[in-house]
């Protein structure tokens, strides 16, 4: 009996760790979505495409400019964020007065176009991108498994960035303006705050978070045009479970669901791709606003 449990543990523990790594990506991506939805009321379906762009910009920086991983981690979010500003100014800003559905359709269309352009340019097999020297090398021995250093770094980086974002929004003056603007934009503007600019920058920040996750993902997954679209549906489920627009909710649910998915891969692999959606259905029935959302 005890041996049985030990065996299950030996099988399950590494999957828990791997689940945390996947959860790190879910958390970062759903965080960006939550920030954008919370402040702009836009369901950003282009998030997966922007995640993919982050990875591709990192690849371009290395292949064409000889600029390595660490700089890419800073530069790529800035570049893709700037692209986000253009998109927001030109297109999304025209939709704020309309129903959510318009924003969703627009960003979905954008995602398809961006993916198409990249597929046409780079093909669909993907491009190689190696982890930086300092995080390469042999995997770390955790006793029950060997974990590549790079995956450990992904979890740490994701946690730090998530925490920082939460702190900025909940604890700083800037965050207070943002939250106030979502409640009553006209009033905040009357106090002399440039609300449209703040909204643009918020969108850029959300997009930059996606690009940051993209750079983190580049050395693990192959850099290919469809890398975002396969993740984004899961991430939307994470956001819905966590509660649309809830920052803390999206981070906690991201990691939590990564874990659940990891365990499903051992004990019932066939269900691993659907388990998150089953949970989503249950949560929507029991708490329509999500686990951490305000009804």
């Amino acid at each position: 009996m005890i041996e049985d449990i030990l065996f299950q543990l030996e099988l399950g523990l590494p999957q828990v760790v791997l689940g945390l790594v996947n959860g790190a990506f879910y958390a970062l991506l759903s965080l960006g979505l939550a920030v954008i939805f919370g402040m702009l009321n836009v369901i950003n379906f282009a998030h997966g495409a922007q995640f993919m762009m982050g990875a591709f910009v990192a690849w371009m920086l290395l292949a064409w400019g000889g600029i390595g991983y660490w700089w890419a981690l800073v530069l790529s979010p800035l570049i893709v964020g700037a692209f986000g500003i253009v998109i927001e100014k030109l297109l999304i800003s025209r939709l704020y007065k309309l129903d959510h559905l318009y924003g969703l359709l627009l960003t979905f269309g954008l995602a398809l176009i961006i993916e198409g352009v990249f597929r046409n340019q780079f093909g669909s097999s993907g491009l190689p991108y190696s982890p930086p020297e300092s995080l390469g090398g042999p995997p770390v021995d955790l006793g029950f498994m060997f974990l590549p250093k790079y995956r450990l770094w992904v979890v740490v980086a994701s946690l730090v960035v998530s925490l920082a974002t939460w702190l900025v929004i909940e604890k700083t003056r800037l965050g207070a303006y943002l939250r106030a603007a979502t409640e009553n934009a006209a009033l905040v503007q009357a106090f002399g705050v440039n609300v449209p600019r703040m909204v643009t920058l918020t969108y850029a920040a959300g997009v930059a978070l996606a690009a940051f996750a993209g750079v983190l993902a580049a050395p693990i997954y192959s850099v290919n045009p469809q890398m975002g679209s396969s993740l984004i549906i899961t991430v939307f489920a994470v956001v819905v479970i966590g509660g649309m627009g809830s920052i803390l909710g999206s981070v906690l649910t991201g990691f939590g669901l990564g874990l659940v998915e990891g365990l499903a891969k051992v004990f019932y692999p066939e269900a691993s791709s659907t388990v998150i959606f089953v949970i989503m259905a249950i949560v929507l029935l029991a708490r329509p606003a999500g686990l951490f959302g305000r009804a």
Partner: peptide
């Protein structure tokens, strides 16, 4: 069209 194979590799 899966992305993460680490779990299967570990098994």
């Amino acid at each position: 069209q899966s992305t993460d194979f680490s779990s299967y590799l570990l098994q």
